[in-house]
């Protein structure tokens, strides 16, 4: 299904940071929502800030958000805990259209439904296996998966184990 862009995306001044601070606040909020919706729709887990992509650039009207603008949008997302920088260089960030906690709960519910507690699954099975390809967490980025499992570990619902070079998890 095609992503349906909001009206702002066709509105040329949307790509220029607005001088009126009230208007700018609304503008950044619209951007925040757009980033999240876009990433959710395209299943983007890690956003590369330097990569050129349609999200921040509308070729039809020949407008693109400046790097300053992108920085501001990401700041808002970070304040909302909807992104997290992958490292200090701030070139890539995890996008949390679901929080690690939410991913954890989703995976745990799936495990319970399938009666798979007390068995060990590999990370690969959990996110790339045939059985899960219709689940929302199919294709989940490994780093986010690990964060999600850590939230489950914290409530004693899972334990991450390493065996013979591969990684797995046991659910309780």
């Amino acid at each position: 299904m095609e992503f349906s862009w909001p009206w702002e995306y066709d509105f040329p001044p949307f790509f220029t940071l607005q001088p009126n601070l009230d208007t700018q606040k609304k503008q950044l909020e619209a951007w925040r929502k757009l980033v999240i919706d876009y990433c959710r729709h395209n299943k983007i887990f890690v956003l590369d800030v330097q990569e050129s992509m349609p999200l921040f650039q509308n070729k039809t009207i020949d407008r693109q958000l400046s790097s300053e603008g992108i920085k501001r949008v990401l700041e808002i997302l970070q304040e909302n805990q909807q992104i997290e920088w992958c490292d200090k260089s701030k070139k890539q960030c995890f996008v949390y259209w679901k929080t690690p906690q939410e991913w954890g709960n989703l995976i745990y519910r799936y495990i319970i439904d399938k009666g798979m507690t007390n068995t060990v699954c590999t990370f690969y099975e959990l996110t790339e296996g045939d059985d899960v390809k219709n689940e929302e967490f199919a294709g989940l980025d490994k780093s986010i998966l690990l964060k999600a499992l850590e939230t489950l570990e914290a409530s004693n619902k899972a334990e991450v184990i390493m065996f013979g070079g591969s990684e797995g998890v046991k659910f309780f």
Binding site: P12, P13, F14, F15, T16, N20, D22, T23, D62, R63
Partner: peptide
Amino acid sequence: IRDGVAWVDGQSTTKT
């Protein structure tokens, strides 16, 4: 602009 009625586009040849 101050009243939030107008938006500025700085990416056209003249400011719009």
